[in-house]
Amino acid sequence: MDTDDDDLCTCMQGMAAGDAAFLFMFHERFATKLTWIVRDMVKSMGRLDIATDPDEIDGLVIDACEVIFERAAGWRSGGALPWNWASRAIRSRVAAGIGHRLVEFDDQHDGDDTISHAPILEAGGVEGEASSRAAGAADLTLDTDPLVAEIAALVRADPRAGLLDRAMRAVGGERNRRICWQYGIQKALGDPSPAVTVGHMFDLEPGNIRQIFRRHRAKVLELVRSDDAFEQLREISWFAA
């Protein structure tokens, strides 16, 4: 047995006993292998935008590790490798993580990362249009999208909200921008479980919502701190050093 086999058996035995330290070990040792598998799954679901986003793939690899941890007691050495043995469960979790329906895709109702024309909101209302990373043809207007109305209200209260919206658009796709706004709005409204509420909106698990929010926020934070065009946002406590 080589070192990888030894490590694999050690990890699987530890995880089978419910010891989460071995989940950490499993991820450290085998994330590279899982990255290829997860990326292939995502590509097969038609999500090249996610397949080429290292942060998204890293998050999905962690989800895949958790799937194997939860099932480790059922694995036997000498059989299929864990990521092959649990491939259906992993695929199901990946699909849930990217909001992919495991039935025939219906492009009339695709809502994530498909906004090609969404108004940029400035102080005083809507000015013009902008294109974000587009993967479809969903069309939103102020009349039909409550989020646009909510952001417009925030901009009227504080013009920096429009600048924040620009920053959010600059670092990621439309779906993640909408998730971040909804999560922030729910928290501001005092929702005790914002990830659950927003998860229902986007048909995603609460853990995925928290992860998307955390990652998108980190990208926005880096942009705000490095680009003087967003200097006004640095005084907001959310971004204060």
């Binding site: 989460a20 950490f24 991820h27 450290e28 890293d58 958790e66 992860q211």
Partner: peptide
């Protein structure tokens, strides 16, 4: 990834 894995362990 180690940080994100810690965050998962923390959630659990």
């Amino acid at each position: 990834d180690a940080t994100a894995m810690c965050e998962l362990l923390g959630r659990r």
